[in-house]
């Protein structure tokens, strides 16, 4: 067993904490329009869930994400953001003009949708980056 902090208390606490953290992260993401919060915070929370797993269960954690995957993910997260911009251009609006999204909705409803999409992108990016950095910091030279 290669668990840095593998004690029963930690294991148990962690098992109950992680789902809450993740749900809270999603809540912060979705609720960002109404109260302080948004993609950055949500991303950090989601990443913490992964990092916590790694801290408690060590490198053999089941719920794990490799640094390589994480940085690719971070890129793709930002790509959601930029991609939405490109899509709005293709749909005939200006860059990042959410009103151009071709759904049969009023601009006032389209805009929150656009905000949500980019917040998702931000969340994924932040999560990916934090995990990737954590991975890079804890990685040993022989893992490369």
């Amino acid at each position: 067993m290669n668990r840095p902090f593998g004690t029963t208390i930690l294991d148990t606490a962690f098992r109950y904490m992680v789902p809450f953290i993740m749900v809270y992260g999603v809540y912060v993401l979705l609720h960002g329009e109404y109260s302080p919060g948004g993609g950055f915070q949500a991303g950090a929370l989601l990443a913490i869930a992964v990092v916590l797993t790694r801290l408690v269960q060590g490198r053999e954690a089941v719920f794990d994400m490799k640094g390589d995957t994480a940085i690719i993910l971070a890129g793709l997260g930002t790509l959601i953001y930029a991609g939405l911009g490109v899509l709005t251009v293709i749909w005939g609006g200006n860059f990042l003009d959410y009103a151009a999204i071709p759904l049969d909705l009023h601009a006032k409803e389209l805009r929150p949708l656009g905000i949500l999409v980019i917040e998702v992108g931000v969340t994924i990016c932040v999560m990916g980056v934090i995990i990737a950095i954590y991975d890079a910091l804890t990685r040993k030279d022989d893992d490369i």
Partner: peptide, 24 residues
Amino acid sequence: ETGSPNLVTAVLADYRSYDTLGET
């Protein structure tokens, strides 16, 4: 205009969304 009561989010993610792209 944006449907977001959180004005900071509205500015961040809509009026100045391009800045936020840069930030990300």
